[in-house]
C-alpha cells in the first residue's frame, strides 16, 4: 500500500476519523473543565496556605486554630495528590470513589481537576508570596480588609507573575488527559488506539494523534504569549 492508501485505510474507511474527532472533543472538554476546577480550588488552597504562612504567627485563639487545621488539611491534600501518579488517582476515582457514576467525562474532570489544583495551588502560593509585603501594608493602611487587599491588590499582581507557570500547567494537563483510556473514556489517545487495533497499523493513528496534541499545545502557547504581552504592556 502506498502512503496515500494507508492514510485512506486508517482514517477515511469506515469513517474512522470520527474516533479522532470525537476523542478530541472529549479531551478538550475534560481539559477545559478540569482547568476551571483546578484554578478555582487551587486559588482557595493558595490563599489558605499563604495566609497561614504570613499571618499565622500573629493570630490568636480560635481563628488561629481554624486556620491551622485548614492549612494542615491543605498540606495533606497536596502531599497525597503530588505523591501519587495521576493515572492511579483517576482509577481510584472511577473504580473506588465514584463507582456509581457512569459519566466517565465527569469522573475524569474531577480526577484531573483535583490533581491540577494541587499544582496550581503551589504556583499561586509562590505568586502571592512573591508580592512585596509593602503592597499588603499599603492596601491595609488605606482601610481595605484582608480579603479586599487580596482581591484588588495582591491576586491581580500574583496572577500576572505566575501566568507562564500556569500556562505550562494547563499544557501538562492537556497531555495528561491522554491516560483517560485507563477508565475506558474515549479521548483522543484512545481514539487513535482503537483505530490501530482495527487496522493493525500503528504509524498513522499514533503519529496523527501526536500531531494533533502538538498543534494544540503550540496554539495555546501562542495564545498565552499574546496574553502575557498584553498584561506586561499594562504596566509600561
Amino acid at each position: 500500500m502506498s502512503l496515500k492508501e494507508k492514510f485512506i485505510f486508517n482514517f477515511i474507511q469506515h469513517d474512522r476519523w470520527k474516533y479522532i474527532t470525537d476523542g478530541l472533543v472529549v479531551t478538550l472538554k475534560v481539559t477545559f473543565f478540569a482547568v476551571l476546577l483546578g484554578i478555582a480550588l487551587g486559588i482557595i488552597i493558595a490563599i489558605i496556605r499563604s495566609t497561614y504562612e504570613k499571618n499565622g504567627s500573629a493570630m490568636r485563639g480560635f481563628s488561629k486554630f481554624v486556620l491551622w487545621v485548614m492549612n494542615l488539611l491543605c498540606k495533606i491534600y497536596l502531599t497525597v495528590i503530588r505523591g501519587t501518579p495521576v493515572v492511579v488517582q483517576l482509577m481510584i476515582m472511577y473504580f473506588v470513589i465514584l463507582v456509581s457514576t457512569r459519566n466517565k467525562i465527569l469522573v475524569a474532570v474531577i480526577a484531573f481537576g483535583l490533581n491540577s489544583a494541587a499544582y496550581v495551588a503551589e504556583i499561586f502560593r509562590s505568586g502571592i508570596m512573591s508580592i512585596d509585603q509593602g503592597q499588603f501594608e499599603a492596601g491595609r493602611s488605606l482601610g481595605f480588609n484582608y480579603v479586599q487587599t487580596m482581591q484588588y491588590i495582591i491576586i491581580p499582581q500574583a496572577f500576572k507573575n505566575v501566568l507562564p507557570a500556569l500556562a505550562n500547567e494547563f499544557i501538562v494537563l492537556l497531555k495528561e488527559t491522554s491516560v483517560s483510556g485507563y477508565v475506558g473514556l474515549m479521548d483522543l489517545t484512545k481514539g487513535g488506539d482503537i483505530i490501530r487495533s482495527r487496522t493493525y497499523e500503528a504509524f498513522f493513528p499514533l503519529i496523527g494523534v501526536a500531531v494533533i496534541y502538538l498543534v494544540m499545545v503550540m496554539f495555546f502557547t501562542w495564545l498565552v504569549g499574546i496574553l502575557e504581552r498584553r498584561l506586561r504592556n499594562s504596566e509600561r
Partner: peptide
C-alpha cells in the same frame, strides 16, 4: 479597617500599586 480609613499612611518605599494607573491608585479606595 474603619479607623484605618481615617489614618493615611506614607511609606519609605512608596508602595504604589504597580498594576494600576496613578488615577486608579488614587480612586480605588
Amino acid at each position: 479597617n474603619i479607623h484605618r480609613q481615617k489614618m493615611g499612611m506614607v511609606f519609605q518605599h512608596f508602595n504604589l500599586f504597580p498594576h494600576m494607573t496613578i488615577l486608579k491608585n488614587m480612586i480605588i479606595a
